[in-house]
């Protein structure tokens, strides 16, 4: 069984870059580049299946493989080493200045290119959202391009004969579907996908891992197909949202002082708590 998991690297949301500054790479330090938390959920989904598969396999059979692929990010290699430290078997970096990844359709094309070069695979995992600036569209676009049965926003996965039974997020509840083994699953941040920590063994593997870098040419893609000029979703403007209302956030003090501070401010503003 060969599982591919597409991950993103983002600027940590712990970084206090406000509004448009968040999108300015010159303001970002390398240490603040992290695997997108929702991508970690996708890695977890892939690793859980690998673990189940490995536990059930015959002795002479090869174990399941999980390959992490990262296109988006300023230093994808860093994210990929962490993915291996979590338990992924290997990793592929896709980096090329000509690739434009802000348009979900172009990103889906890049992913298709990567999958074609990888060749055979059984399952594709990705996360439904990139925090902060998601297009929320890549999973569905990729599934449609590949003609793969798919589930978006999965919350739980159960192995069944010849495929998976998957529960996914739905307005007013949860929907259960069954997909064949060759499928695409995008994950939510449900309890089931709570990411594991890196392990000692994983960290060693990550240090030793040779991670290839594929360029657009390696994927058979040229700038007029996946470059900025090919984007059909084009940014017209990006501006800070000015919030008029003032917010009163208490950041300092002993807990009791903070509560007193809040209550007296509420009183001053004539905001009544309760009847």
């Amino acid at each position: 069984m060969k599982i591919i998991v597409f991950i993103d690297q983002i600027v940590s949301t712990q970084v206090k870059l406000q509004g448009v500054d968040f999108f300015d790479p010159s303001k970002v330090d390398d240490v603040d580049l992290v695997i997108n938390p929702t991508s970690k959920n996708a890695i977890e989904g892939a690793l859980k299946l690998k673990n189940t598969f490995d536990a059930e396999k015959e002795e002479e059979e090869e174990g399941a493989k999980v390959t992490a692929v990262c296109v988006r990010g300023l230093k994808p290699i860093k994210a990929l080493r962490e993915a291996i430290a979590m338990g992924c078997t290997d990793a592929i970096e896709i980096a090329d200045d000509t690739l434009y990844t802000e348009d979900p359709l172009l990103l889906a094309k890049i992913y298709v290119g990567a999958l074609e070069k990888i060749g055979d695979f059984d399952l594709v995992f990705l996360s439904a959202e990139e925090q902060s600036s998601s297009s929320y569209a890549v999973g569905a676009m990729l599934a449609e391009k590949l003609g793969l049965p798919s589930v978006l926003y999965a919350e739980e996965i159960e192995n069944i004969d010849g495929g998976f039974r998957v529960g996914h997020v739905l307005e007013g509840g949860r929907k259960i579907v069954e997909v064949p083994q060759k499928a695409l699953i995008s994950t939510s941040d449900s309890q089931y996908f709570t990411p594991r920590y890196t392990s000692m063994k994983g960290i060693l593997n990550a240090k030793r891992a040779v991670i290839p870098t594929w360029t657009a040419t390696d994927l058979g893609l040229s700038a007029n197909v996946v470059g900025k000029e090919a984007a059909s979703l084009q940014q017209v403007s990006l501006t800070n949202i000015v919030i008029e209302k003032e917010s009163y956030i208490i950041t300092e003090g002993e807990p009791e002082e903070m509560v007193d501070n809040l209550l007296s401010k509420l009183k001053e503003d004539e905001v009544k708590l309760g009847a």
Binding site: S237, L238, T239, N240
Partner: peptide
């Protein structure tokens, strides 16, 4: 985008 701190027009 960015937790509703910025507005992207496309």
């Amino acid at each position: 985008v960015r937790d509703d701190q910025a507005m992207r027009v496309t």
